[in-house]
Nucleic acid binder design. Structure first.
Length: 172
DNA sequence: CCCTGATTCGC
DNA sequence: GCGAATCAGG
């Protein structure tokens, strides 16, 4: 890997846009490390930048408990499938909602995805715009952030609650 | 631990 | 010029 004109140009753009060195490295592809990016930045004399741009990653605001996304009308069997391919089954309404709830700045590419990040897919996997949520995957080593875990498993929880309510009435 | 940029120095 | 290793810090 070498610093071609295109690479340098992209580096300039992304760095100026306020991306971190590791993020820029991820965008430039495998073979470019964050050290390489930092080194190049210094050699180019780009070390000082208006670091008020997107520098500190804004955390995602916690979704309000009230209007939670739920997947009414989603297939009722295959909870497992929902867990593995939520994007395939998610209702359009949910997709629109997460556009609002999850900040774009939090989304990550495959290269940026870490073990500790939410692996909820966002967008069309066949396009370069495809991203993962990238939030903190805190839930017991699970694949999702708190919000998306809730979204993914909501239908199962709903059905269980409905069933339990029915039983409670029957035996009352 | 997660991450950030800065610096050094052998290649 | 390049970037891994390392450092100092949030």
């Amino acid at each position: 890997m070498s610093w071609t004109d295109e690479r340098v140009e992209l580096l300039r753009k992304l760095w100026t846009d306020g991306l971190s060195a590791s993020q820029v490295a991820a965008e430039l592809g495998p073979g470019i490390t964050r050290n390489a990016v930092i080194g190049k930045i210094h050699r180019l004399g780009l070390a000082e930048r208006a670091k008020t741009a997107a520098a500190p990653r804004p955390r995602a605001a916690k979704p309000p408990r009230q209007n939670q996304a739920r997947m009414n009308g989603a297939p009722t069997h295959g909870n497992l499938a929902l867990a593995f391919a939520p994007h395939a089954l998610a209702a359009p309404r949910v997709a629109r909602e997460e556009e609002v709830v999850i900040p774009i700045s939090e989304r990550v590419t495959l290269m940026e995805l870490r073990e500790s990040m939410c692996r909820w897919p966002m967008g069309d996997p066949t396009t370069p715009e495809f991203r993962f949520c990238g939030g903190k995957a805190t839930v017991g080593g699970g694949p999702y952030c708190g919000y998306h875990a809730r979204v993914a498993y909501q239908p199962a929880q709903d059905r269980r609650r409905a069933r339990d309510q029915l039983r409670a009435q029957r035996y009352a």
